[in-house]
Nucleic acid binder design. Sequence first.
RNA 1: UGGGACGUCGCCAAGUGGUAAGGCCCGGGGUUUUGAUCCCCGUAUUCGCAGGUUCGAAUCCUGCCGUCCCAGCCA
Length: 565
Amino acid sequence: MSDELVAAASNFIRHIIDSDIETNKHGGKVATRFPPEPNGYLHIGHAKSICLNFGIADDYQGTCNLRFDDTNPHKENIEYVESIKQDVRWLGYDWGDRLFYASDYFERLYEAAVELVQAGKAYVCDLTAEQIREHRGTLTEPGIPSPYRDRGVEENLDLLTRMRAGEFEDGSRVLRARIDMASPNMNMRDPTLYRIRHGVIHHQTGEAWCIYPMYDFTHPISDALEGITHSICTLEFADHRPLYDWVLDNVSVPCHPQQIEFSRLNLEYTVMSKRKLTQLVEEGRVAGWDDPRMPTIAGLRRRGYTPASIRDFCTRIGVSKSENTVEMGVLENSIREDLNEHAPRRMAVIHPLKVILTNYPQDQVEKLEVANHPQNESQGTRIIPFTAELYIDKEDFREVASKKFKRLVGGGEVRLRNAYVIRCDEIIRDEHGEIIELHCSYDPATLGANPEGRKVKGVIHWVSAVYGIEAEIRLYDRLFNTPAPDAAKEGKDYKEYLNPDSLRTLTHCIVEPSLKESQPGERFQFEREGYFCVDLQQADCGGLVFNRTVTLRDSWAKLEQQQND
RNA sequence: UGGGACGUCGCCAAGUGGUAAGGCCCGGGGUUUUGAUCCCCGUAUUCGCAGGUUCGAAUCCUGCCGUCCCAGCCA
């Protein structure tokens, strides 16, 4: 994290913490937590929360716990637990010995429930889920009390004990808080505290329990038991804060953490809800949670994003309470900035077009020593073989083109990057008129020197046809073709906006020979093309596979686009 | 029509009564053997709207408008 120059932006949460420290509200301590539910993989929105919580802990010499909110064994599993730990660690954060599970507190949670019952503040309710819903009222009408609301303490205690003992079926009873059925806040209309769940094996507690506490009961108590000072969550929990405070005010806990809500991240051209991401995975719309098109941490990692770039992104987008949708350009800027500085340059031809240098000795090989980074000598050099047969990219040749096209045209000259200036003398076609080869001549005086008496503007990349190696290159684009797939029009499903061209796989690309030794996860800039990384899962085909992380900025493409409009 | 929150440049976002930071995007110019990078320069007389208080308001008050969230035995 040493090269993070971007200072942590001022935000309203830090203001609150500053003032709490000033007034010694929590004894001057700062303790946060990141509380994921292990029911899916982490995504870039979670990264925002991770950076916020761990970042605050770092900056205030406080602590940040990793706590799994594992109160719903139906949806949770150990694979998710492991992936979450891996992703948080990969992002560069360390929870030290402060790894917790809400399930660590099941016994104490149960004691707290007993305490509420004894105080007449909770009761066992025999209504069905549907009846409870009917009794709850609506947004504009108060609810009506459950017929079981005034059960005696002893009966409630007995029933709760038997719920725990497994005497009742799923759905037959719940424990409810006794608060206010007429509250304008739905969350306060006698919320459910415990439900019965037989037959599920919890990934941490196994079959020890058949009743499981609800989030609204678990979260405040877990926070308090861990001595959390600032319990940061997203906006949709703001309505739950009165309940959070009610729980802490009505059971015996060591402290009363403060819940603060901020707005979650939305990103253009993707979806962020766990439900939708899970659906994309389960329906095979993508290749898995780590598909490079996914906004998951695992997907971004496989795409080639660095932890530093994601942290940088998170500080750039800031933290506030307003609804927001961040443009992809911000994320792309973060990774480009990192990779521009750190990624070694290489040459790779994505759409090969053969070039034969007719005046170059046909069996000669020149070993050109080339810089790995144009602005950073410390990255050293490498050797690239130059031969009479080369490949250039089809996109870099046009038979005829306007003056604006600064690449190779029929009869014209262009600079081969790090090598000679060549002239296109002849265009060779197959029987269908398709261009299959270019015959060119090179100017021997132009290696590391400008040609005499003329200016050659264009520079294109190339790879020796003799020494180049074949590779598969996967070009990724946005997953959806509309900026807000979530805001789908009436009757439209977000999946209808899936971009059919989000992945283009090119199998016969030619890359320079030095890439043969590259390792999974290694990142490069393919000059004039973009940033690529060696696929983490490459192996299926035995060969080299490169994923395009992001293109280079391309003012030529922009110009051409404008001309076409 | 109940409750909670939010509205500052195309997208984020500072600003907390003293005269609109910054980033991304965008436009113009320069350097360049990556149409990349880098470097300059430019981009809100105005803060959802309307009133009011004040010498002075994005910041305070009143009213209005718009957007988001809430009726799981999910988190």
